[in-house]
Design a protein around this nucleic acid. Sequence first.
RNA 1: GUGAGUGUAGUUCAGUCGGUUAGAACGCCAGAUUGUGGUUCUGGAGGUCGUGGGUUCGAUUCCCACUACUCACCCCA
Length: 505
Amino acid sequence: MASDKKIAQKGSKPKARLPRGFRDRFGAEIAAERRLVDIIRGVYESYGFEPLQTPTFEYTDALGKFLPDVDRPNEGVFSLRDDDEQWLSLRYDLTAPLARYVAENFQHLPKPFRRYQTGLVYRNEKPGPGRFREFTQFDADTVGSNSPAADAELLMMVCDALEALGLNRGEYIVKINNRKLLDGVLEAVGVPSDDKERRGIILRAIDKMDRLGLGGVRQLLGPGRTDESGDRTKGAELTETQINQVMLFVAPEGYLPKNFDPLLRIGSAVGPSAIGTLGLNEVRGIRDILQAAGYGEDQVQVDTSIIRGLDYYTGPVFEAQLTFKVKNDEGQEVVFGSVAGGGRYDDLVARFTGQQVPATGISIGVSRLLTALQQRDLHSETPLIVVLSMGDVGWSFSVAKELREKLKDPISGKLLVRAEAYVGGAKKKLQDQLKYADKRGAVLVVFAGDDERANGNVTIKDLKRGAELSKSVESRADYLGARNAQATVSRNDLVAKIKEKLGLR
RNA sequence: GUGAGUGUAGUUCAGUCGGUUAGAACGCCAGAUUGUGGUUCUGGAGGUCGUGGGUUCGAUUCCCACUACUCACCCCA
């Protein structure tokens, strides 16, 4: 058929395209993420956490039990069949592989076992703006301790890491809550804790507080909610009195007088419930340790509206939020929200061993955090210098080599600049070389031409300053005459002059 | 998964009440400038109007399906 032929011809050349929900990363973005990861790693290692790497694939059944929706067990993960017919899946987080690792190596590991891990994880979900099917997480977990000390330590580490990244006090806040408190409230309200379905609905409803507001949450707790597209979300069918009690517990900001100790308020909402009291004690335990260790309310706060959707959390839950405004792609200011989350999951390892092992962890969303930090210029790229050649290319390489060798931090030995010689031989007009340097984002350019070489000189041009100066230039004549952002210096003074220009010691 | 909206140049968007060669801005390339990016001026390249089908003498325009994206909702380990 003619149409088939057309399709076949069309299909003979594959279209260069990216699978949806995935992205390419390049250059400065990679450098920035690497730097961020290095800083977090430094903090975590300083606490004595050990690195762990696990493969990106796991047997599906090792992950599968965590799938919350039993009706769609393979939804959300990328899976494939191995040649021995067994199902493999790409990891969707770093917690499930940890549970598998601990279960497999249980007797060899020190307890508590404290490890950190960073890497790519995969989710086979509908991608959206800022949501991808492949992204980086940075986790720290402690397995084998039920002490609030383990939870408190993770929170301290996250605070330290955020501050090591350059955030000031007040620019972030780590919030803590406890699932047992909510269980206590539900018990006090008269919803039995084994009513898993209703409990789930209530959890998810409270989690939507920031988006739907008080009214929306109340609807979801009661009869349910119909959105503007006519889609109906089932509610928890609580009575008005029950809803009021739950809302009192959740108590969004502004509901109660400021400076009212949240623990007192929570205590009254939980009432005499045993599980609620347990939760209260856990929260208090974590808070006391943090305070004694010098972490204050300006860093970690109790907030009962923090829920986190995951079903597997059994007690404390954590969430780190940024408090400053961040601009989105359209330049509008938005509150960025959560950059890290976690909690205690005491039942995870038991799936493999049958033996209950307490565990707690926190995960930093590296990509999200990076997006936010980039706007604050917390990532300064290592300056790039391009050496241009007019004549002997070999000489320009010797200049670039000298820059690489001599512009190093005297203590750490880290490179202070990146220096490259121009290698685009076919187009060697100076104009092209400068355009290239400009496009590369070079800070400085060094002219290593025959004229300079003959006189034992070299010319340094400041591209950034040149661009500034050109803004005030009106006529073409002025523009052509403007050569004031550059200077010819003796080759012997090259390194010293560049240090001076870049403000290096 | 549900509902709505949008797909026109590399990008952001005009436009066609169905009619010959589909436009702008920015970006890109070249020249003015044989040792100067960034300013300015001149010129140029670049589009199966998302894909497939239908209606029609004729479809980028109207209709249907598909697909991608955006928004809201469900879900999000």
